[in-house]
Design a protein around this nucleic acid. Sequence first.
DNA 1: CCCGGAACCTGAAGGC
DNA 2: TGCCTTCAGGTTCCGG
Length: 275
Amino acid sequence: MPELPEVETIKNDLSPYLIGRTITDITLTWSKSVIKPSSLELPGRLIGQTIKDIQRRGKYLIFPLESGQYLIMHMKMSGSLILKAASSQEEVRFSRTIFTLDTGERLHFIDPRKFGMIWLIEDKEEVVGKLGPEPLEPAFTPDTLSKILSNRKAPIKALLCDQELIAGIGNMYADEALFASRLHPYEIGGNLDDKEVTLLHQGIISVLRAGIAHYGASTSDYYRPDGTKGMAHMFFNVAHRGGKSCPVCGTTIQRTMVRNRGTYFCPECQKLRQP
DNA sequence: CCCGGAACCTGAAGGC
DNA sequence: TGCCTTCAGGTTCCGG
């Protein structure tokens, strides 16, 4: 599931190949991926446009174009972008959209579950304008986090995954950040004291940086643009490790549900404060 | 405004 | 061996 570190890795991997390239063709095999404009209009508007840069905002991948427009993609849960050489003949499984470049290379938007989304728009804020702060930007301080959580009554795990509060954290890294700061996922967000908020702030930043350093986590469908997997999941302490032992204390890691999402935690290291 | 849950999808995995 | 059920989860939408 591409979260911030996975999308950042895709951006970094693709940058040297895509910046300055012109899109010469597009093939849509699942047109519902295209949100705006209509899938019928997209080819005519996109073909001939040149990619000026690649950026990431939250879990969105943004391609500013020379025309001033933006091509934006969201991988949702199962999406990947795979770059194939001009000479490649092999069929790409689950390919939903194919962008052909002026080099002859083809960029495949792979999306088994068909949840991914593509936009071509003038104003990128229309798509990413409501997102919360970027957790790896200097402006994201413990004080920022404190203000975000204050008076909130939802479980801290649910708040961490809310893109309008903080951008880019998903299920896996929320679990890892909570383990790093020894907080129980059901803890009420607004109940955290200053010390806990500071620990959580550090935890968020450290698990996201570690994720990027290991090129993202391939727990299921995520692949880097060259087809290889990330390694970040090998260093996870609790995420997707239900039934295994906590690397800190050896207690069996438990799985529960928060907002209908599988949530992993160590019941010994992450104790729920009594009400 | 805030919170929780369903819906969108389909491959993979587990049960019988 | 094979059918059936369940699980996975980012975002949006809707109800309380």
